[in-house]
Simulated assay, not measured.
Amino acid sequence: MIDLRSDTVTKPSGEMLEAMMTAEVGDDVFGEDPTVMILENKIAKYFGKEAALFCPSGTMTNQIAVRINTQPQDELLCDRTSHIYNYEGGGAAYNSMVSIKLMHGDLGRFTANDVLENINPDDIHYARTSMVSIENTVNKGGGSVFPLDTIKEIAKVAVDNKLKMHLDGARVFNALVKSGENPLHHGKCFHTMSVCFSKGLGAPVGSALLGSKEAIARARRVRKVFGGGMRQAGYLAAACIYALENNVARLKDDHRRANQLANMFEDKMYVENIVSAGTNIVIVSITKDKSVKQLLEEWKKKGLLAVPFGPNDIRLVTHLNFTDDMLQKTTEILA
């Protein structure tokens, strides 16, 4: 079965499993897991931040960021396509008692002017705008990449208006490989950053929240309250270290295959639109006379898995377990 439902479906390689099996571990809640500490120091340094906190998921790191960057009755700004708004179970309202104002960007990418126009006035009738969240790459934008210059402009508006900047970087490594930009330059733009190891990098579990020492100290308290404290988590951290050291540069292969995958749909009569921004996500919009459910069932019978992504949309995501041979097989299935 060719599984293109997500880049989270990958399995650890033999080398990654070996790194996990030989990891030195301790109790991370007591701050005694050496491998977790190595990972946290390594990923913080990668983006030029002071500290990091290892967590089970990107949803948790995003939700911790909302909690430490806002106060109840505040409002955060993000695009209407954002994961933090669409796919985290209303967590911002439930966990942090904040509201969300949505912007309407280009494939999820908004501008500094969009932010400026959506900051609420200092008036008791309005929620206090306190945080901006950027997703890079944008999942619902077909893996679209936020340009660094745009991020810098938004960061300046944030600083000028005393707003906290957060990055939902579930696929930030895809963005960096695509753009060739320096991760240190991205790190300078954000108060907090969530980065994921279990998507394009292929680790089985794990995300990290990055920020100042003070922010991460507060985040560690929130992680405990959220039930995210892990014990001998070094086995998982070892997989993330291996992924960070070995699986970043190869993301260009996922991007190449996604581009070829997108091209396969260009001559299909049932396809109305294709969104693929050059990273590892392809979104196919089909004509209204065609059923998404039926099409996915037909593909599944032939050995191809994808996911519905809206009333008329299907998402396919390339990853490190999707090979060139599978790409060729996909061509045959779609034909």
Rank of each mutant, 00 (worst) to 15 (best):
A19G: 02
V29D: 03
P121C: 04
G229D: 13
R221L: 13
G303H: 09
G141I: 07
D123H: 11
I43P: 00
V138S: 04
T61R: 02
G227F: 07
L334D: 04
N120A: 03
A19W: 15
E245D: 15
V284A: 10
H166N: 08
S13G: 05
A93K: 13
I2E: 01
L76A: 03
I100G: 04
L107Y: 15
E32K: 15
C196K: 11
F309Q: 12
C78A: 07
N41L: 04
G14L: 14
L4Q: 00
V98H: 04
C240H: 09
N86Y: 06
A203C: 09
V159S: 13
N280M: 07
V66D: 09
Y270D: 01
K11I: 06
V248S: 08
E298D: 14
R171A: 14
N136E: 08
P183D: 05
D79T: 06
S212P: 10
D74F: 03
E15N: 13
F226H: 11
V138W: 02
L77P: 00
Y242N: 09
V66P: 03
F54I: 13
K252N: 11
L148I: 04
R256Q: 15
P204V: 07
N120T: 01
V157E: 00
R128W: 02
C78Y: 04
V98A: 08
Y242F: 11
A23Q: 05
A93W: 11
R257D: 05
N321C: 09
Y242P: 10
K101W: 02
M97S: 15
L295P: 03
Y235D: 08
A155C: 02
N312K: 00
G310W: 02
N139M: 03
H104K: 15
D267P: 00
P204E: 10
A44H: 12
A23K: 01
T279A: 14
C55I: 06
I314N: 09
P183V: 06
T323K: 09
K213Y: 10
M1H: 11
G89V: 08
G108L: 11
G234M: 10
Q63M: 15
A238E: 00
V284S: 02
N273F: 01
G303W: 02
A258L: 12
P121N: 07
D168L: 12
N118Q: 06
E117K: 15
H166Q: 11
Q73K: 10
R218V: 11
